[in-house]
């Protein structure tokens, strides 16, 4: 296992780390299409969906429920195949028409409802990846896991079970479980969806600190516009089915981000631009009678 470039996550050092971006993890999604059940109901989830993500970029994707956001993420993660186009990771084919989908530790997913194994302790969860891949001995993995947990202030819970933690802590552990694999891309599927406002804003802070320290490419699904603008470098609006990228918003807020920015004029302008675009799609989806597919 190469040395993970997780720097100290203390406020002042995070400032300097803000410029650091991982050298790899560039994604290029080319005219991707996905049709469920082509001979039967023929649901077109994605059509001609293209976007470029540079290495170390934090990209958020928003859109109405039931648009192809999660489908796209599942294809990138290797849970599902695509039916048109291709996806490249650092120029290498990641998902094509000819290859069977295969998940791997180079692009780890953090799930909507959380998927820490409830039957493993926090430390066992965190070390699962490196141990199961055989890249670290259990002892090495334990040391590494403890180190990473303590850097985000979770050093006293390693023997707890996930069920004993708050949802905010669970997500932090899950992100650490992903990062210990030193992935090229981090795929986050509405990870803060079910949280209350307070937990959510604290979780944003932790995620930003981890991002500043590691500079990993992040693909973040959400339907919370404020969250998207606050966290990301680039916010993409996806249309309702068939899904493609309708609009791209470059967020030029400086990093590190802090909560004061939520009230800035730039922020509010960007938000109002997004609200219009997303609202249009939401109404279309609502009228098409889409069921909540999340």
């Amino acid at each position: 296992m190469n040395d993970v470039n997780l720097k100290l996550v203390q406020k002042d050092q995070a400032q300097e780390a803000a410029v650091c971006r991982a050298p790899d993890g560039a994604l290029s999604i080319k005219e991707v299409g996905k049709i469920y059940d082509p001979e039967g109901v023929h649901v077109v989830a994605l059509e001609d969906c293209s976007l470029e993500i540079t290495a170390g970029e934090f990209v958020a994707i928003v859109g109405p429920s039931g648009c192809g956001k999660s489908t796209l993420l599942n294809i990138m993660a290797g849970f599902d195949n695509l039916t048109a186009g291709e996806i490249l990771l650092d120029g290498e084919p990641l998902a094509t028409l000819d290859t069977a989908p295969k998940p791997g530790p180079d692009r780890v997913v953090v799930f909507q409802h959380g998927a820490l194994f409830p039957w493993k302790t926090v430390l066992e969860n965190v070390t699962y990846g490196p141990v199961v891949q055989g890249v670290m001995s259990p002892e090495e993995a334990n040391d590494r896991g403890r180190e990473m947990l303590s850097r985000v202030g979770l050093n006293n819970i390693e023997t707890s079970y996930p069920g004993q933690l708050s949802s905010g802590m669970q997500r932090r552990v899950e992100i650490i479980r992903a990062l210990i694999n030193n992935p090229k891309v981090l795929l986050l599927d509405e990870p803060f969806r079910a949280m209350d406002t307070v937990t959510k804003s604290a979780s944003h802070q932790y995620l930003l600190e981890l991002y500043n320290a590691t500079g990993k490419t992040i693909f973040f699904i959400t339907h919370d516009l404020e969250e998207a603008i606050f966290l990301a470098d680039k916010v993409l609006v996806m249309t309702t089915r068939p899904g493609y990228i309708k609009q791209t918003l470059e967020v030029d807020l400086p990093r590190p981000r802090h909560y004061g920015m939520l009230a800035s004029v730039e922020f509010i302008e960007m938000k109002s631009e997004l609200v219009g675009a997303v609202h249009e799609e939401a109404v279309k989806a609502f009228e098409a009678g889409e069921r909540e597919m999340a």
Binding site: D37, V41, V43, M293
Partner: peptide, 11 residues
């Protein structure tokens, strides 16, 4: 999801 769609949609 795709499976469920097949079962309910087709005659």
């Amino acid at each position: 999801m795709a499976n469920a769609a097949t079962m309910t949609g087709a005659p």
